[in-house]
Simulated scan of single mutants.
Amino acid sequence: MSSLAERHQYIIKKLQKEQYINVVDLCSELKVSSVTIRKDLKLLEDKNLLFKIHGGATLTNPYTVDRSVNEKEQLQSNEKLSIGQAAAALVNENDSIIIASGTSVLAFAKSIPLNLPLTVITSALNVALELSHHPYTEVMQLGGMLRKSSSSVMGPYSESILKDFFCSKLFLGVDGIDLEFGLTTTNMMEAHLNRQMISVSQKTIVLTDSTKFGKRGFGKICNIDEIDHIITDSGISEHVVKQLQSLGVTVTIV
């Protein structure tokens, strides 16, 4: 199978089935060089049939844009509710946890039992407000520069406060998860804060709907193997689940 048309047909069919394709795998399967495969991917991208990414290609646009929290809250709302409920089941009595910003973690905050004794550190104003109604939850709101699009704070002041604490779990929302590039958000300062959160947490649990996979934001948070657990919905492909598990990440699908 070496003709241009046959290769392109094979690539598109494989991509439609798996959502992501790898240059190395295609070289082996089609018995051509990586140079040839990269040229094929470039031609298909020029025809708007796929998006080239590092090491392969995907069907979905990998680049995320910043949206307001009000807009994002309307997207995949049922999936986020289920993800939040699954995450709430992981919280134990008298836990000390960090809740980052985002609509998935807000859904998680809304799912935490009202009478559960808990200490929460958060950068998100909407999360703090939600938990202010919980009589046995102590809430520490981080300070810093307000990021209006996410209703959260960020910056060096937020990061410096975190250095005085260590928590059992971090519940983290992201704008993109790429198997090679890692976890990202659309804001570099928030990415820095998220990295600090990871460094002071025993376990990092990522809450994300399946549309975030294969996406990349501007600011890199961390590599995939630096997280412990991902909770997502059934829209995630089997291929991505296997790749995550091979990197030592627990995957919960709701």
Score class of each variant (00 low, 15 high):
Met1Lys: 09
Ser2Gln: 06
Ser3Pro: 04
Leu4Tyr: 05
Leu4Val: 02
Ala5Tyr: 05
Glu6Ala: 09
Gln9Met: 04
Ile12Asp: 00
Ile12Met: 09
Gln16Val: 01
Gln19Phe: 03
Tyr20Phe: 10
Val24His: 15
Lys31Phe: 00
Asp40Cys: 06
Leu41Gly: 03
Leu49Phe: 11
Leu50Asp: 00
Thr60Asp: 13
Pro62Asp: 06
Tyr63Thr: 14
Thr64Ala: 13
Val69Lys: 11
Glu73Trp: 12
Ser77Ala: 15
Asn78Val: 08
Asn78Ser: 15
Ala89Asn: 14
Glu93Ile: 13
Glu93Pro: 03
Asp95Arg: 01
Asp95Trp: 10
Asp95Ala: 02
Ile98Lys: 05
Ala100Glu: 13
Ala109Ser: 14
Ser111Tyr: 08
Ile112Thr: 05
Asn115Ile: 04
Asn115His: 12
Asn115Trp: 04
Leu116Lys: 05
Pro117Asp: 11
Ile121Cys: 08
Thr122Lys: 09
Thr122Val: 07
Thr122Asp: 05
Ala124Phe: 03
Asn126Gly: 04
Val127Lys: 07
Ala128Glu: 00
Leu129Gly: 02
Glu130Ser: 03
Glu130Leu: 06
Leu131Ala: 04
Ser132Thr: 06
His134Gln: 03
Glu138Tyr: 10
Val139Cys: 10
Met140Cys: 08
Leu146Thr: 06
Arg147Ser: 09
Ser151Thr: 04
Tyr157Asn: 12
Ser158Pro: 10
Ser158Asn: 00
Ser160Gln: 15
Asp164Met: 05
Leu170Ser: 10
Leu172His: 02
Gly173Cys: 01
Val174His: 13
Gly176Trp: 02
Asp178Gln: 06
Glu180Arg: 14
Phe181Met: 08
Phe181Tyr: 14
Leu183Tyr: 09
Met188Ala: 14
Leu193Asn: 08
Met197Gln: 07
Ser201Asp: 09
Ser201Val: 01
Ser201Ile: 04
Thr204Asn: 03
Val206Gln: 00
Arg216Glu: 07
Gly219Arg: 04
Asp225Met: 01
Ile227Arg: 09
Ile227Phe: 06
Asp228Asn: 15
Ile230Gln: 08
Ile230Met: 00
Ile230Ser: 01
Ser234Gly: 14
Ile236Trp: 09
His239Ala: 15
His239Met: 15
Lys242Ile: 11
Lys242Thr: 12
Leu244Ala: 12
Gln245Phe: 08
